[in-house]
Design a binder for these strands. Structure first.
Lengths: 246, 246
DNA sequence: TAGTGACAAAGATCATACTTATGCAACCCC
DNA sequence: GGGGTTGCATAAGTATGATCTTTGTCACTA
């Protein structure tokens, strides 16, 4: 067994950058650096124990996400959250890990409410037969996992289900939102904003979506997916209010 | 007059990076580097006449956009378009500048069809009075500019109008799409996919949206915005088919 | 008080040296 | 001869020092 890198304990997959990017993104996302505060490159080198090259490359990436901006003679300035690239997968994850999580989930779910029913509608018009069948299969397994109360499996299948609907829409922009949806579902589960046991109605709706897409019925597909979204929004609000009252 | 940098002729705003990023993004977006092809850092240094640090920082950013991936002992590999971060403003612009423009506009418009009517609906429920008034004002000016046939002004106002609707929705995810919409509208105008003279119905619909939002009528706001989107899609298809038949 | 010019701080860029992972091919054992 | 193993050359990764360029700041002048 080769000696694992002793410099990075709980390091992210590969590379020094990835690690530093993640740490900084997490810190900024959590508001540990208020918007407007400045850091100097030299500081950061020291704090993360890496060289200038690494820091600069990290900063470039964060800058391209709209999280920081560097100006000569001043330093690297943290930008307000309104500038951040909210559609970047990492930014989403960082924000879901932050205290502002709930508000974030709310707006993400609103976005899903706009997108996914449309995606389902288009899928009913355009999905290849193979996709439609797979969707039916997934809906079935999802039902089973829901009844069994197997949370992990349920999450995995749920992600797959929504991913397939999005990609079956035939629209690349919708398809690209699959990672966003996956983050949302994972976040909801991970942070306890999912009901303990999925309600039977919710399971049925997934079956309805799959079935409508297979039948090529855009109106039903749209309607059922919309119902799923509205239910998700309601569930989140409920659980969130309960938590707030405790 | 100080000597302007002779290395970058039509250089982008400030900085060497920005320039190189733009050139490379444009080239990759246009398919000049087929997916899977590899480049070596040393090559790129030479080709763009910049040092290694600059190239590396550029590559980091492109990698974070999912456009390239670098592997030791191999080089930097161009990733297939399915991996690209399609919600990044620069990626959108690069693709709109490429031959695949029309397909891109189609999927972007489909996305807008899903989002903007919802945004209008939410705006009718949540928009502050000031925003609603400004919207009415914009709709008025838009009408005037449309009647006058002042294309530039029309574009500017159109962008402002849609931006304001998105931001008035109170949803940050919708709000963040304003740059996407701006790129689409600019692209349509710039590449001749906009009718010469905006049709009166289209102008009226913008007024209808603003009016519905001001009245706080979500159903009408949704409906009118949807009509705008459907009309845009139709216009694009028509012009595009005409162009194809020539 | 406003305008102006010198100074210095900090990022931007360049150049170079050293480290590390890894594709490939030669090699060896069965 | 086939399949696994070892070595090596290569190209990216990381570190560091030097130099260039921009731009706040502040003192000085009118």
């Amino acid at each position: 067994m080769r000696p694992t890198d002793p410099l990075s304990p709980g390091a992210v997959p590969p590379g020094l950058h990835a690690s530093v990017i993640d740490q900084m993104g997490l810190a900024i996302g959590a508001g540990e650096w208020a918007a407007g505060s400045v850091m100097r490159i030299e500081e950061l080198e020291e704090r993360y124990g890496v060289s200038r090259s690494v820091i600069r490359e990290v900063l470039r990436v964060l800058a391209s996400m709209g999280m920081v901006e560097s100006r000569r003679r001043v330093g690297v300035q943290v930008l307000p959250a309104t500038e951040w690239n909210l559609y970047d997968r990492q930014v989403i994850r960082w924000r879901l890990a932050s205290p502002g999580r709930v508000a974030q989930l709310r707006s993400l779910t609103e976005l899903r409410t706009a997108i996914e029913p449309q995606a389902a509608r288009l899928a009913a018009l355009r999905a290849p037969l193979a996709d439609a069948s797979e969707l039916m299969g997934l809906a079935g397994k999802l039902w089973a996992a829901g009844q069994d109360g197997d949370t992990d499996l349920f999450l995995t299948l749920d992600i797959q289900f929504h991913r397939l609907v999005l990609s079956s829409s035939g629209n690349e922009m919708f398809g690209k939102l699959n990672s966003l949806v996956a983050e949302v579902l994972t976040g909801r589960t991970h942070y306890g904003l999912m009901p303990e046991h999925p309600h039977e109605e919710a399971l049925q709706m997934h079956v309805d979506v799959a079935s409508a897409i297979q039948r090529g019925n855009p109106v039903d597909a749209h309607q059922s997916m919309l119902a799923i979204m509205e239910r998700a929004m309601t569930e989140m609000s409920t659980l969130w209010n309960e938590a707030a009252h405790k």
